[in-house]
Simulated assay, not measured.
Amino acid sequence: MSCLDVPVDILLVEDNPRDIRLTHEAFKEADLDTSLQAVRDGHEALEFLFQQGEYEAASYPDLVLLDLNLPRKDGHQVLKEIRDDSELSPLPVLVLTSSEAEEDIRESYELAANAYLTKPSNPDEFVSLAQAVANFWLKSVQLPPVSA
Rank of each mutant, 00 (worst) to 15 (best):
D33C: 10
D33S: 15
T34E: 10
T34C: 14
T34K: 06
S35H: 14
S35K: 11
L36F: 08
R40N: 11
R40Q: 12
H43L: 13
A45S: 02
L46T: 02
E47D: 15
E47V: 05
F48K: 02
L49W: 02
F50W: 10
G53F: 13
E54L: 06
E54S: 14
E54D: 15
E56V: 11
E56Y: 14
E56M: 09
A57H: 14
A57D: 15
S59F: 14
Y60P: 10
Y60A: 04
Y60Q: 09
D62S: 00
D62T: 00
D62Y: 00
L63E: 12
L65T: 13
L66Y: 08
D67A: 07
D67I: 04
D67P: 05
L68W: 02
N69A: 07
L70R: 07
K73W: 08
K73G: 10
D74G: 01
G75D: 01
G75T: 03
H76R: 04
V78M: 04
V78E: 08
K80A: 10
K80M: 04
K80C: 04
R83I: 06
R83G: 03
D85C: 00
D85S: 01
S86K: 12
L88T: 02
L88Q: 02
V93F: 08
V95L: 12
L96Y: 15
T97E: 13
S98I: 13
S98T: 15
A101L: 14
E107N: 08
Y109C: 05
Y109I: 04
E110M: 10
L111C: 06
A112G: 09
A113Y: 02
A113P: 00
N114D: 09
